[in-house]
Design a protein around this nucleic acid. Structure first.
Lengths: 159, 159
DNA sequence: GCGATATGATTGACGTGTCAATCAGCGAAG
DNA sequence: CTTCGCTGATTGACACGTCAATCATATCGC
């Protein structure tokens, strides 16, 4: 079934349009879920944990200001705060006071956190290759890049 | 930047591959979030509420067995149970006992639930058109359909 | 210096999702 | 008929996310 099957830019959605929309959203979500489950099995980390530890692992001294970390991974500050609380309880990161600004907090990856992150990396990237990259031809990968770019352009800017 | 820029099917991910992967996942999630926020503004419903009410609205007598509903929208049973509890509290659905099987429960959309659903439908479909369909050429829409199909084929089957 | 305001970060309340455990009713084996 | 297992559905514990409120510290205007 292709776009030649029905009228397209009218006011209402054709079954094909609706199905394609749903397929897009649901496939992305299922991929996320499968990757997340594998990550958890391999390393005990969630996707959020992985994102935080990745950012910290790339930072000077494995540490970042909380606000810089939030900006880097594009999370809301309160989301990060809650998540860091959970990660701290599990010993993956630690919070330290900031020297030059007493309001600020610095987040540091612990040895345990870095260890879990290293354990996660290779299987995680392998899973991305297997479930996503290997499924697509080079042309399809380019199409994904192009399509996500035009979709992003339409998205309202985020505060 | 295209696939001609670097080696592609080696063991590790190129920056292009990684960026395209991330763009795919993040764009889909941002789209979901924006659509969900609009839905909430327009009708006070969440995406979950919408999915449940859509299924009920298409069912005989606006009612379904709980298990049939779960299968229809592809949700885990416990997820549905929790969600129905919240929807029931808000008066969007009601649960009734099933006549032929005393274990079973039937879920019915209330008048209030159907009203909210009708209020949601048009703006929701319009948002899908604006943010997704109108952003893509017919060829790009076909590409999405094709790409999601091949990705789904790789996904492990769900229990 | 001091008061108003802005900024960094946390908190509480609540909706959402998963997993494992539970419970009640149904139905077949004996 | 009763016991055992299967099925429909719910529950509790907990992870995750958002929103609005809060709190402490910095900083600006005077």
């Amino acid at each position: 079934m292709t776009h030649t099957t029905g009228a397209r830019s009218g006011r209402w959605l054709t079954p094909y349009e609706l199905a394609t929309w749903r397929a897009f959203i649901e496939t992305a979500e299922q991929l996320r879920n499968v990757l997340g489950a594998r990550l958890r099995e391999d390393s005990g980390l969630s996707e959020g944990d992985y994102a935080v530890l990745l950012a910290l692992s790339e930072a000077e001294g494995r540490r970042l200001r909380s606000s810089a970390l939030a900006a880097h991974i594009d999370w809301e500050r309160s989301r990060l705060s809650h998540h860091l609380g959970r990660m701290e309880r599990r010993g993956l990161i630690a919070r330290e006071e900031c020297e030059d600004d007493n309001r600020g907090a610095e987040v540091v990856a612990t040895a345990e956190g870095m260890s879990a992150f290293r354990r996660a990396t290779v299987p995680h990237l392998r899973a991305v290759r297997e479930l996503f990259l290997d499924a697509l031809t080079p042309e399809q990968l380019d199409a994904v890049a192009e399509i996500t770019a035009v979709l992003r352009d339409r998205l309202p800017p985020r505060p």
